[in-house]
């Protein structure tokens, strides 16, 4: 049986709008509609979509914070909103933009309190804490109040907090937002190991395609409240026809660069913008440019999720 099962999930919000001096109009907005998917235990799924597409609404329904307007939803065999506190013991939630820790307390106190709240057996608690503190390099930070932690440190603290009770499912909402490259890499590595060793089901929302690339075998793309894509990441890229951009800074101004596999979109003094299909490797393009021109600097831009999705629509 699937660990998460959603069928024809729908969620509407009543929006009041001012219409005239005193009159207010009520209208209904569909945040999510006809959403159907199922996730097997142990899967790592990326859930992406532009802002306001319905990602957060979905996560809130899956955790029991929001009651669906219609449709069928089971998480770990439970109806989330009806049995919220029961479900809470089976899931872990990491909100990238806000902390689940207590702002004024040292990390250690927050963890101890969570142990009591989730009634984690002392032996399990010790084992998990030692493990995550080591893996996430939190050892020196345990006695620091949460408010004094950097964003990356806090995020590691939050992830530890979400895992102390050995949840079957871990939801991560923008877990890498605002993190530097090294922290991002470490975090991804940690999540992959968690899934490998414990079989924890992961559902993460993100704006960073690289998160998905590193972690998820499966992507669900939501737009305007419905799934527009559900499948492997490669399928999304090649099907969508999105393009990556290579920004080249030459030593001197030159006519548009001409290398196989890429086209030059823009020239501005010594700087040129080359684009090539997102599913192709950047290596041959970079090599060809470096071989034929005097290059001062290079940088690579991934297609934004929004572009991929726009392409997806245009292609589909």
């Amino acid at each position: 049986m699937s660990i998460i099962e959603a069928r024809d999930l729908e969620r509407t919000f009543a929006v009041r709008r001012r219409a005239g001096r005193l009159r207010r109009e009520r209208s209904t907005v569909h945040a999510v509609r006809d959403l159907s998917f199922s996730i097997e235990a142990g899967e790592m799924v990326g859930y992406i979509g532009p802002n306001g597409a319905g990602k957060s609404t979905t996560i809130k329904m899956l955790t029991g914070i929001l009651v669906p307007t219609a449709g069928h939803l089971r998480v770990a065999g439970l109806d989330p909103s009806a049995r919220r506190t029961e479900l809470a013991r089976r899931i872990g939630v990491v909100f990238g933009q806000r902390t689940t820790l207590w702002w004024d307390l040292p990390l250690r106190d927050s963890f101890e309190l969570l142990q009591r709240i989730y009634r984690v057996p002392p032996a399990t608690y010790r084992r998990n804490l030692d493990r995550y503190v080591e893996l996430l390099a939190l050892g020196d930070l345990l006695d620091t109040p949460v408010r004094q932690l950097s964003l990356g440190q806090r995020m590691r603290g939050d992830i530890t907090a979400a895992l102390l009770h050995d949840p079957d499912i871990l939801y991560l909402d923008e877990p890498t937002i605002g993190l530097d490259v090294v922290s991002k890499g470490r975090l991804r590595e940690f999540l992959r190991a968690l899934n490998d060793e414990r079989g924890t089901t992961l559902l993460l929302t993100t704006h960073d395609l690289q998160d998905i690339e590193a972690l998820c075998s499966r992507v669900m793309v939501v737009d305007h409240g419905t799934l527009v894509f559900d499948g492997p990441l490669a399928g999304l890229r090649s099907g969508g026809g999105a393009r990556r951009t290579l920004v080249v800074d030459l030593v001197d101004e030159a006519p548009p660069i001409d290398v196989p596999g890429a086209s030059t979109d823009r020239v501005e003094g010594p700087r040129q913008w080359l684009s090539f299909p997102a599913d192709a490797s950047a290596a041959p393009v970079v090599a060809a440019v470096a071989a034929a021109y005097d290059v001062a600097d290079l940088s690579l831009q991934e297609p934004a999720i929004e572009d991929v999705i726009r392409e997806l629509y245009a292609g589909g």
Binding site: K60, I65, T85, R89, I91, F95, I117
Partner: peptide, 14 residues
């Protein structure tokens, strides 16, 4: 307003 209620709602405590 701050959204900390969401955090409380996913904990197994009334």
């Amino acid at each position: 307003r701050t959204g900390s209620l969401d955090v409380m709602l996913v904990r197994p405590v009334p």
